[in-house]
Design a protein around this nucleic acid. Structure first.
Lengths: 141, 141
DNA sequence: TATTGTTATACTCTATAACTATA
DNA sequence: TATAGTTATAGAGTATAACAATA
């Protein structure tokens, strides 16, 4: 590994990754807070742009179904999400954004500017190259 | 913005960022869980490789001091961190990793392989370029 | 009087286990 | 009997406010 003055190239790259991920996550959290939402609540809401069941949310978010129940309870109490019975399988609940829920999701997406800003700081060529390198660095999986 | 078949370059780049950040965060969380630690606990422990006060931790982690108190209480109860009185300012507590705490931090750092693996998937030239683009994309701040 | 840290309180997330109602 | 979802419970993070000890 190529040594620079103090650090290896790999160490400097790892530091750059950490700094980028940290900035991304902070902006995401700040945008959620601006709408009085938690990050898990936003994760649910943005997925509900397409209606889904409790179970599919649990799979996608890789968390327990009882967890989803609690998060959706709070979103429903705030009038952002509705539960419908599925007439085909009456055990199942189909979740939808309410009009207000959609408004909040759109507001969040406007408020979360980090990724757009990042693209804005790069030339089109650099943007393509960053996307390629991120995908290669992330690897399969 | 240049259009491809379905998405703009910017949208594809934003998707690549999201996917990278998500993979980074998951691996970080999984490494913490492997040592029966939460992410906030790890954030405290890794900073304590250099001894610090409660207050400086609160500033660095941008959270309330009472929050730090609770996290440190749990780490101290597990014997991973010690509180010392500062003889100069007796209001202040100097926190240190115990021997066991240091062992856990090292174990975590070995278990958190995502950033190292990412570097391993790139050539040295690509690694340098990724670091440069991440820093430029992140911007000042 | 200001600062460092703690305690008390309340809300949220998360996981496990036990439960209901369907299938 | 198995599946979708809920309820009960407990540990942990987070923020605010009130507090103690010290400066």
């Amino acid at each position: 590994m190529v040594k620079t003055a103090e650090h290896t190239v790999g160490e400097r790259a790892e530091q750059a990754m950490y700094s980028f991920v940290d900035a991304y996550d902070r902006d995401y959290g700040a945008a959620a807070t601006a709408f009085d939402l938690t990050v898990p609540q936003v994760c649910v809401l943005v997925r509900l742009r397409q209606p889904r069941t409790m179970g599919s949310l649990a799979v996608e978010l890789e968390c327990d179904a009882s967890n989803i129940t609690q998060i959706v309870n709070r979103l429903e109490a705030r009038g952002l999400v509705s539960r419908e019975e599925d007439p085909i399988d009456r055990r199942s609940r189909l979740l939808r954004l309410t009009r207000e829920g959609l408004r909040i999701v759109r507001g969040f997406e406007r408020a979360f500017t980090f990724a757009r800003d990042a693209v804005g700081r790069l030339s089109p060529r650099e943007t393509e190259e960053l996307a390629r390198l991120l995908r290669k660095a992330r690897g399969p999986g």
